[in-house]
């Protein structure tokens, strides 16, 4: 993409709300016969200065949008790799304000929709309205809160709507029909379907119940379904892409950054991983 094209597409994007920009991703992907690929990376990795470049590298390698992790001290839904990433980012100075400004820079420079991924307490601490206001101001398209089930999500969902942000809700392998229905009725921008039991992390084998889970969701609603947790290589990405409207990869990318000797290497490793998985996203 030439830089002039990017500027004009960014301006066009600004006319639409964050929630609409996320919804557009699924329409475009469907037209192009592929699944939406949303890489996750914690803001502030490997350090504050080079963090935006990591996302830039992934955007150029074919990411459709991002989950930008706002690092949290006690990430209950995350396995050891993302926990270590959060710790390192906080240690590097990724405060809430710094993380939000990284998210802003990522939205601005990549032009693709970015969702903030965080936990309930940082949102609660500053207040749902303050949080959504700052996200919208930074140019974020939406938000995902790992420990906020639909039962507790209503106040934040309303604040997100007021600020034009897309709100994402979770469905898990263990979710009952009643819960799936309630999630659908809350009309999230997309449904994050947790593809495996347990916390985020790489897995050699996948739950055999994922396909059934996606079917159970689709029986209830046509809201886009995005699979996450346990997707870490092109083979798994290909499976996820065939099953769902989108997929999220986190741990495998955070690990590459943590294992890289310097930011250039990290960006290179991310670009390689993302382009392989983006290629696998074609139906």
């Amino acid at each position: 993409m030439k830089s002039s094209d990017r500027t004009s597409s960014t301006e066009a994007a600004r006319m639409r709300s964050g929630a609409e920009r996320i919804a557009d991703l699924f329409v475009t992907a469907r037209r192009e016969e592929r699944s939406v690929f949303l890489p996750f990376l914690t803001a502030g990795l490997p350090d504050l200065g080079s963090s935006p470049a990591m996302f830039q590298a992934m955007a150029e390698a074919g990411a459709d949008g991002f989950e930008v992790g706002i690092p949290y001290s006690d990430p209950l839904m995350d396995g050891p790799v993302i926990c270590r990433g959060s710790e390192q980012a906080i240690g590097a100075g990724a405060t809430l304000d710094r993380s939000l400004s990284i998210l802003g820079e990522v939205s601005e420079t990549t032009g693709v929709p970015s969702l903030a991924m965080t936990y309930a307490n940082p949102v609660f601490r500053r207040g749902a309205d303050w949080f959504c206001d700052r996200l919208a101001e930074a140019g974020a398209a939406g938000l995902i809160v790992a420990d906020l089930p639909f039962d507790e999500a209503q106040p934040l969902g309303e604040a997100a709507r007021r600020h034009g942000l897309g709100m994402v809700l979770f469905v898990a392998l263990t979710s009952t029909y009643k819960r799936i229905k309630a999630v659908a009725e809350a009309s999230p921008t997309f449904i994050y379907a947790v593809a495996n039991l347990g916390v985020t992390g790489e897995r050699s084998e996948w739950s055999s119940r994922v396909e059934e889970l996606v079917e159970r969701i689709r029986d209830v609603t046509d809201i886009p379904v995005v699979l996450g947790v346990g997707i870490s290589n092109p083979e798994q990405a290909a499976v996820a892409a065939r099953l769902a409207d989108g997929f999220i990869v986190g741990t495998a990318l955070v690990r590459r950054v943590l294992e890289s000797s310097d930011p250039q290497n990290a960006a290179g490793a991310l670009a390689t991983a993302v382009s392989e998985m983006a290629a696998a996203a074609r139906w």
């Binding site: 089930p149 979770f170 898990a172 392998l173 263990t174 979710s175 009952t176 947790v194 039991l197």
Partner: peptide
């Protein structure tokens, strides 16, 4: 019904655990 003592308490847990908590 939401597990609150006044405003305190509730159920801020990953979705995977929600059915088990119910």
């Amino acid at each position: 019904r939401r597990g609150r003592f006044g405003e305190y308490g509730g159920r801020f847990a990953p979705e995977t655990l929600m059915a088990a908590l119910e």
